[in-house]
Design a binder for these strands. Structure first.
Lengths: 238, 238
DNA sequence: CACGATCGTGAATGCCGTTAACTGCTAACG
DNA sequence: CGTTAGCAGTTAACGGCATTCACGATCGTG
């Protein structure tokens, strides 16, 4: 059962997260220091150690929450569309991913940038890792749904290089779905192009050539649509 | 003319770079501090201010040098192949880019990760920016060469969305080449897929599914080859 | 030789994460 | 109700960080 103390504690943890998040947004990742968070909350830095074992642990908690928020955001976009219009759903989710990334570049950097910051953890089951896994699975389940309702051509198992086939099979087992390996392959190819392209844009690595990469992104969506046999759906807004 | 003092100074600058580079490789970007560099050189941190205006400036200098090295590395790969075999050249350069990235993940992170580190600079002409520009142009010139020697189908200007077409035209003017906009478009599409995919791999964002993304990379090369009408060339090593 | 530029030092400032000792408060128990 | 254990916060301190400043040494040039 949850005592009053527990509830107070949970509220404080939430306040710490929100404060950290606000500082992240307003001043960037390097400004998310224990002292800054505590200062904003009218406390001193060592007090935060009552709630998190270290600065890195706090960051990882924050990353987990942001993953969860992004997941919800994408599921929301998927639900805001006629439930059987898989093409509209695919385009809506992909565009929402990009829109969220552009609207939350600092958060996106924390989630999908180089992981070398204090958030690196390999062994134990991490809260952030768990949320990331759920995020990945959300995307995968959209794909699963798509494949089931509107099958698209995928390479046969024999046409996939053996080394890759083994890895796909292992991944398929990991996530516990029953799908042709070709579907898993196409999923990964699409995800790599989507996340790769969005990362380049958010991190500013397309600025050398493009002021506004949106039409480029739409072109990519059209190409992914061809792979998935989905008709292109122009963006709704604007 | 270069006095002896100038030469000594240049040698010190080089030693600082090399020390910083070594620390970057061995201990990661967060360990590249002025104190650490100075310590390794048997000096104290403030002395480094004689050579660089700030920690960020030193980092940007380092980034520039790494860009230059990567550029040379790619040009080397291009030259190590029969000069008229454009398909082999394309595959060699793309594979060398990935190989270099995997062999130098810390450096790659500095060059192509989220730029929010002390290296951010927008206004003045930065040494690092200059080197990055040269790097981009090297890649572009390979493409130019490819297009001239072995034209591939590209979309007509009228088939490119107007907004994108304008940006491509501006970029074409920037780099001062005379090419159909469709070639510029295909160049960017290929570059985005190449860098996007390699970034995901180097930053560990494919580990959720793949132990060894190499076959996935080769698949991407094959697809780029289709776009560019280049026959697939299997990797030479192994 | 003497002068001035250049290169390096040590001390100091104000950040940072983290630890340790200490002080209240408060909830639970006899 | 009084006592007590644990929780949440404090201050002080350590070592490390970038950066600034005043100072001294050194060296090439006039």
């Amino acid at each position: 059962m949850a005592t009053r103390r527990d509830r107070v504690r949970a509220a404080t943890v939430r306040e710490i997260s929100e404060t950290a998040r606000r500082i992240l947004i307003e001043q960037g990742p390097d400004a998310v220091t224990l002292r800054a968070i505590a200062r904003e909350m009218g406390m001193t830095a060592p007090a935060l150690y009552r709630y998190f074992g270290s600065h890195g642990e706090l960051l990882r908690h924050l990353i987990g929450e942001i993953f969860t928020e992004l997941t919800a955001e994408l599921m929301g976009a998927a639900k805001a569309v006629p439930p059987d219009d898989m093409s509209a759903k695919f385009h809506a989710v992909a565009r929402q991913f990009r829109r969220w990334a552009l609207a939350h570049p600092r958060e996106y950097g924390l989630l999908f940038g180089v992981p070398v910051r204090g958030a690196g953890h390999r062994g134990e089951t991490d809260f952030a890792q768990e949320c990331a896994r759920r995020f990945g699975w959300t995307f995968m389940s959209l794909f699963l749904d798509l494949w089931q309702k509107r099958p698209f051509p995928v390479p046969a198992d024999e046409d996939i290089p053996a080394h890759l086939r083994d890895q796909l099979a292992r991944y398929r087992t990991d996530i516990g779905v029953s799908l042709p390996l070709g579907v898993v392959l196409q999923f990964l190819k699409c995800w790599i192009r989507l996340q790769g392209g969005v990362s380049l844009e958010v991190f500013g690595h397309l600025e050398f050539a493009l002021d506004d990469p949106e039409p480029m992104f739409e072109l990519m969506l059209a190409e992914l649509g061809e792979i998935l046999h989905l008709p292109y759906v122009p963006p709704s807004g604007s």
